[in-house]
Amino acid sequence: MVAARLRAPSVLDRVLTDLEPDAVERLAPDRARCSIGGHRCGVVATVRSKMLLTLVTTSVTVDGAAGIATSEVRLAHRGQLRRGSLTARVRRGGDDAHAMADRVASNDGIQRACQHLDFTRFWLHVPTPGAPWRATVALMGGSYVATRVPPSGRYISLDAEQRRALADLVGALHVALATP
């Protein structure tokens, strides 16, 4: 008798397992929708091939209420040794973008969640006037590194602390940006 073929989980499979979402809908090999912190989120696995290195990283997208004007806001922590407060910098847009940035930066829930969440990029944008805002968080965990020198690969998991911080962030974003 031939045993069933072994199928190891993909990075997206493992991320979805780590997140322990309430509901999961697979849309493509590299993306899924699920519920995090009671809110609908997207999960996207992105492959970045560099010389002798392949990196698969995960981003979580959160869609909210309709925005007003086209905006793009980047968020990053202050500090050189310890994480300071999260600051929001407007990359595109006018008064509405600045208002969105202020609401996010002044929200205690977002500040607290981001103190514990390891992310590499965090940005908010409203692509067109009236479109829902979208937050995108590129995570440090939930990634996979395959190197040639040395020839090996490793999945970097999302632990419980990261999962909780992400859920808190998703909830806090919806509170901060509930209305335009």
């Binding site: 002798l52 290195l53 990053a76 500090g79 440090m140 590194v145």
Partner: peptide, 30 residues
Amino acid sequence: STLIAGIPRILYGMAKDGVIPKAFAYLHPR
């Protein structure tokens, strides 16, 4: 570049898993 780009992230993962000291899980704040 590969050595420097790949190995630190692997070490971060191992630190998060408790296999090596937690210092390797430290991320620069900015």
